[in-house]
Design a binder for these strands. Structure first.
Lengths: 358, 358
DNA sequence: AAGAGTCGTGGGAGCGCTCCCACGCTCTCG
DNA sequence: CGAGAGCGTGGGAGCGCTCCCACGACTCTT
């Protein structure tokens, strides 16, 4: 079933059918009705390839996830990001394709780039988890591909959506200080990721504002996974004299790993060491103790990214926009808050709306 | 940069360049070398839309996830499935597009189907999380779209990959019986999902083999989320006299919810009530106590699905194939096993290879 | 030595759309 | 009342490939 056939059946020209399909207003009501009727009766849908070839638009967006596979799905950041972007794409009539580097060494991304980007498979790109100096950014600029980063890019004039990691971290650490903890350690993410750098900066700022000199020996860098948090915590536990009374972890996964190590060592959370996470993933709510954390609106990040990249496709000359979405400090028990004072409105087992259990 | 230009620069015809690009052997070595040189020098990649239009092949595979959004990413089944399919697609030179129903009521899937499937945006489809009577299966058959299910489809002659949920559940429950538990409850998934039905059937079989009459009051149905496990466990706790001494949960998320409820009630796992999960997700390894579970190779399920759908694209007449991938009982502490006898080789914090912590 | 294959090559046709221009009609206004 | 503008419409050209057929130059057969 092609445009031409629909045209024949509706007694109009190819052009008129095309106009109806594409919502062009310059079609008489009678013609439009006839065409729509035939389209509906034959369940016609235009061929995507032909459309793309003629219009030089694919109506496809790519979501590029370039981090090495292993780290990807230990926390739900990426899944929720995928969900948010897919949602916004659906709403806009776009298709979402996954460009996922499934190699261990980042070699797949090069191949994907060539085939998908240069093959004009997508109209625009959403980049997730880029390092500070991700070489793909200048490539995209050179190829003039509309794109948006999820996670800020320092310096360069590129569009991005992000949370204000630094302020959020500062607020979280200030909350720990409010509980009276003075020796606050941090388990940080990999220092080549901006999010990790920003969260660390926020931590330092909060300490300085409380007139507490930051102790570099209290800060350990790991990847964002549970294992990293576990190892880092074990390392801190190896010097009991220098053990912090609270830990600010740069991700919930790190926090969970740290809590595991603490509990294995016979320490109580938060009584002996308080823990604050970062991300607001559901798993933290079901921990013992429930994890205090900084909630970031990941799905909204994805939706906003789609909005921006679509706007850039429409107007490639538009100046880059940079959006920061709000975070929310989600207080549960691991930071030392009492159940009565927790602010958790979502995510936790006990706080969720009831589901039927047959 | 088009085929024609490459041809001109290499001093050959369009056809010859096309042959080189597509690996046709009937090109002289000299011509091939010249073309490859020009292609490389100009970083030429063929236009995907033009290729698709002319060849009637898009080299795109769709991954359709039709479950309502809320349930999607509380456990890492889908993320890992995405990763496995993306990996296999990369390897085969295919692109993966996400067809994700992000509506609450399943309405988006209809729209996606029309636009993407009928618009011939994909060559084939991988269906994840289909219900017993998913109406999309007959639709796909009618439209003659190559597809494969992840999760078996009873009765119909369609291709699928799955694990043998029933045998795996039977083995898991048999293990609990081996610990001496006699009153084993089950928290089951939604009964419209085949995986839930199969796991329940395996549970019943194991009990029957041990000459224990299954007690329907010991079986509760929930969704696959933590909240469902929590609610179900609370319901069981409401009748202390009938409390099981072990719980077989149809997913790790359910198991985690159940453990939370048990611990909130002041009960010890596994001393008072043992718990066995199903999935083998990483989070379970970092629980207190670490969760015993049935590991299923989700990424391999995705890879195998891609393999099957590609074979079906090559030969649409081939008879449907049905692959069952092996599971592995992963014993940790929650079922009553001692640390010394655990079989965990992967996933757990303590069992992972060391990572550098700076 | 003539016919039948094989091999490398070139070019025409066409995939199913969109985009642009042209055409005829009606309406407005000087 | 005739020029100009606007509207709905149709058709040609072309997007960048693949596929098929044709063709010449070989080699192999009998």
């Amino acid at each position: 079933m092609t445009l031409e056939e629909i045209a024949r059946l509706a007694g109009v020209s190819r052009s008129t059918v095309s106009r109806v399909i594409n919502g062009d207003r310059r079609v008489s009501d009678a013609a439009r009705a006839r065409v729509q009727d035939v389209v509906r009766r034959h369940n016609y849908h235009p061929n995507a390839a032909a459309r793309s070839l003629a219009s030089r638009r694919t109506r496809v967006l790519g979501l590029l996830i370039s981090q090495a596979v292993g780290n990807l799905f230990t926390d739900p950041f990426y899944p929720i990001l995928i969900q948010g972007t897919a949602d916004a794409c659906n709403a806009a009539g776009y298709t979402l394709t996954m460009l996922m580097d499934t190699s261990d060494d980042g070699s797949a991304v090069e191949q994907l780039y060539q085939r998908v980007i240069r093959g004009r498979h997508v109209d625009g790109l959403i980049l997730a988890c880029h390092a500070v100096d991700d070489p793909i950014v200048p490539l995209l600029e050179a190829d003039r591909i509309p794109f948006v980063l999820v996670g800020r890019h320092p310096g360069a004039a590129v569009s991005f959506v992000d949370i204000d990691s630094r302020s959020a971290a500062r607020e979280a650490v200030a909350h720990l200080l409010g509980h009276g903890y003075r020796r606050i350690g941090m388990i940080c993410g990999p220092p080549h990721l901006i999010a990790a750098i920003d969260r660390h900066a926020g931590y330092v700022t909060a300490l300085q504002e409380a007139a507490i000199p930051p102790d570099p020996s209290c800060v350990l860098f790991a990847d964002f996974r549970q294992r990293g948090g576990y190892d880092a915590m074990r390392q801190m536990l190896a010097s009991p004299a220098r053990l912090p009374d609270a830990i600010f972890a740069a991700s919930d996964a790190l926090a969970i790993g740290a809590i595991t190590a603490l509990q294995e060592a016979g320490l109580r959370v938060p009584e002996d060491v308080a823990v604050m996470g970062f991300d607001g993933m559901e798993a933290g709510a079901n921990l013992q103790p429930p994890l205090s954390t900084v909630f970031q609106p990941v799905a909204d990040l994805g939706r906003e990214a789609v909005r921006i990249v679509l706007a850039t496709i429409d107007d490639p000359e538009r100046i880059p926009v940079q959006h920061f979405l709000p975070t929310r400090l989600t207080l549960r028990r691991s930071c030392g808050c009492e159940p009565s004072e927790v602010s958790d409105q979502e995510g936790g087992v006990a706080a969720e709306p009831a589901l039927s259990v047959a």
